[in-house]
Design a protein around this nucleic acid. Structure first.
Lengths: 223, 223
DNA sequence: AGTTCTTGGTGACATTGTCACCAACCTGGG
DNA sequence: CCCAGGTTGGTGACAATGTCACCAAGAACT
């Protein structure tokens, strides 16, 4: 068995499953690979399978009927798409879409296998309900931030989380505005202010963090 | 068997369950009544049971650490609290709370019975996952509205949905501001503008809708 | 009548969103 | 090489919304 085929062990919530359940997951799943930038699910494109993300990142975002876009959340390696997939199956006419932000590797399991596992395994049920619960509470937090948090605080926070250890973020003002659900001009002004304070440095298509401590202080202070 | 004890038939998603499953729901549930204005679940108060709301309304809202409040959604008769309850059990430190907006009547089932039903009945699974999915897609819509919709549109929409057929809404500017996650002053100004246009009439503690058609046009136009 | 709380009004100002427009840069084709 | 068109970012004016401080009228209670 290859490394990818032992994928169940890589999921914190799945590694404690009963051995027979793990065996079902492994034997009835297919490892798939998707290149960067592909719309994995979206309007008019609901997948047949539920995905468990082994490597890479999926960005879930939404386009408003006013033309505005906003990033809702990301699915990282070790997480599953069950909730988003389930939502798609339940409501075809929703407006969210999932895009591979990097090349990704995932384990795909058919819906009926998913249903069978939910029925047979208490551990698997707990895993699924925990995923749903985490998603809903995260959405509560996001509503709170969008409604009440100042934009400079949200931008500092987003820069830090996008940097992921690196000091330079490859992105554009436009993409940052979609992250926060605001307008490009607003991002440009805020970044100018951060640059004026010496916290960041800008180049075309990238932002470099010069003073993480100050950014963290701003991001944490009122959060 | 009293009327309240046949409650399963009143749930669109439950009435199609297998008879044996219905029997478990009926026999293992307790009918409870809660007066208006009680915090049913909230920080430091996660209930032991999952509730199926037979009569009344539960308002779910959130208090930000900045002191701001916003109404997230309502649970109406015929809906269940499973998702919110599940969230509470999973994450004790969340900030949302559920308050009885009217006197309510509900069927309470213990967690282990819920788990047993999810395991045994495909129909019940479908009901539960549909409830989760509906909630998540509704939250997506709410994020879109909070982030991108103009306040006059949101207020017109909220007035219409709160009116519920009546022409006079008993509420205060303060309560309306919590509904939309904004400030009281903003509500006061918008209501003044609506009044100036002759769409509504205000009194202390109430708002009367004079021109539903215009309000609907504003609410629908960009939604 | 007097006190206190609730409800709503107001003006000044800060923050954020929108619009129109421009300049610099990049890319691909002739 | 030069040019055309797309991308990226900057700017100013203005509109919409949020914040703050304060006030006034009504309601509730003694």
């Amino acid at each position: 068995m290859t490394d990818a085929q032992k994928w169940v062990e890589r999921f914190p919530g799945l590694s404690r499953l009963e051995p027979t359940i793990k065996q079902v997951l492994l034997s009835r799943s297919a490892i798939i690979e998707v290149p960067k930038g592909v719309t994995i699910f979206g309007p008019g494109n609901s997948p047949e399978n539920m995905l468990f993300l082994l490597d890479g990142t999926v960005r879930v975002q939404q386009v408003s009927d006013t033309g505005h876009e906003i990033v809702l959340y990301r699915i990282q390696a070790g997480e599953s798409c069950v909730l988003t997939t389930a939502c798609l199956l339940a409501f075809e006419n929703y407006s969210a879409e999932g895009i591979s932000e990097t090349a990704i590797q995932a384990a795909a399991i058919p819906r009926e296998v998913f249903d069978q596992l939910v029925s047979q395994s208490k551990s698997f049920r707990d895993f699924v309900f925990a995923a749903f619960s985490k998603r809903i509470t995260d959405l509560f937090l996001m509503i709170d931030e969008v409604a009440f948090q100042r934009l400079d605080v949200r931008l500092a926070d987003k820069l830090l989380s996008l940097s992921d250890g690196q000091d330079t973020i490859i992105t554009t003002h436009q993409k940052l505005s979609v992250e926060l659900g605001t307008a490009r001009e607003v991002i440009s002004r805020q970044l100018q202010e951060f640059q004026r304070r010496g916290w960041i440095e800008q180049a075309r298509g990238s932002v470099s963090l010069l003073d993480r401590a100050r950014l963290e202080k701003l991001a944490d202070h009122n959060s």
